[in-house]
Design a protein around this nucleic acid. Structure first.
Lengths: 216, 216
DNA sequence: CGCGGTAATGAACATGGTGTTGATTTTTGT
DNA sequence: ACAAAAATCAACACCATGTTCATTACCGCG
């Protein structure tokens, strides 16, 4: 079974309940776009609710109709993405190291990895803003834990899964941060590589050792 | 030649010029401590200059005597750490992969790595605050670039150092972020491991492959 | 279409932080 | 002890905040 995220990617506006008034959807969408734009341009701390509403072409009262403050808006958007990603975790948990080694040829990208990068691309405008220099420091660790940590712990040698030594602790942190870094880099660079290419690269990175020839 | 950072670790107050008035040193030190404390307690965006001065037990005017605003204080402290770390880069650039493989036994930690972790420990209060959830999102990439990127590019297989393919690009990002994650984890966990232990762990992480037995 | 409900608007308000200024007091370096 | 310099205190105009309320515009539905 493969999960598609068409629906999840579509609900990219904040707290879009099932049947919300068209005006509310428009307002929240405008606020989302304005937030992203201003975070990119000035950084999260460098603009006010006034600026936000001016950019969104909305009355300030409208903002306070939907959100308590600037942070409430930001967190709502973050929570949506994290909630979407939760749906990938079950796919991740089905994955074992043995399986990975079977497809090590690097030719056939893992389908669920392709889907993951597709989803990240669909959310790229928000992710780029929130993980960039004008973003929110709390988000990247959430993304890392939602996606990478499960992945890494599945890859762990069986012997070390249940009795974590200090080294295993850092081993997990090492690879989880590494993959977060790859995702971040991909977003930073404008997602030049396709999702399939990234899925292949991600797999090769897991199976290589420094100093080895990089060719498979 | 081994570089010691006694002096660097000692000048942990913001912009401590050579012979500054004792009152200035006291004020800046108090502001540094207050900043760290409030970032830990409430997060950088959640307190005001008023709060900062109240915590530092200083008049608000004194703050504005030394810093333009809250951000100026933060950046001054960040710049100091980054400047200190620049001094490690030369040690890093002297290092080659061949050398690393020679000490792979994992018994003898690389001296410069021990010094690096010693320095990070000396700055732990600030680093913990600035890299934690109440910190500054711009700092971690600076730390990564200052320390990890050079290291990784030295380790790169010679063949790929001058003609960077997309994969090499992500390869560097992968390991640089990985080591940043290890450092962050170490700080988060209260630096339970000694600098020597961390130097050994850092080396083992470079030479291991997922799925292999973790024993050396 | 038209009507009731609801969202958006605009204005006003008290509150509190900002960054600056000037006069005064305290502390420092020598 | 003395001059320089830093810290203090009070006051200032300015701006963002979050709230309220009356009014207007729009939406969903019968």
């Amino acid at each position: 079974m493969t999960i598609t995220f068409e629906t999840a990617a579509a609900c990219a506006s904040p707290a879009t309940g099932a049947g919300e008034d068209r005006r509310i959807v428009r307002s929240k969408r405008a606020l989302r776009d304005a937030l992203i734009a201003l975070m990119e341009e000035r950084g999260y701390e460098a603009f006010t609710v006034n600026d936000l509403c001016a950019r969104a072409d909305l009355n300030r009262g409208t903002f306070y109709n939907h959100f308590r403050d600037k942070e409430d808006l930001l967190l709502t958007l973050e929570d949506e993405v994290i909630a979407d990603l939760e749906r990938f975790r079950e796919s991740l948990q089905r994955l074992s190291l043995a399986e990975l080694l079977r497809v090590r040829t690097g030719r056939t990208p893992l389908p669920f990895l392709v889907e993951l990068f597709d989803y990240l691309r669909a959310q790229a405008d928000f992710l780029h803003a929130v993980m960039g220099p004008g973003g929110d420091i709390r988000f990247a660790p959430r993304l890392r834990d939602a996606v990478c940590t499960d992945l890494i712990e599945n890859i762990l040698h069986d012997r070390y899964r249940e009795n974590p030594t200090p080294f295993v602790n850092y081993y997990v942190a090492f690879y989880a941060s590494a993959y977060l870094g790859v995702i971040t880099r991909w977003l930073e660079m404008g997602m030049a590589e396709s999702s399939e290419e990234m899925a292949v690269i991600a797999l090769r990175l897991l199976l290589i050792k420094p100093g080895e020839s990089i060719e498979l």
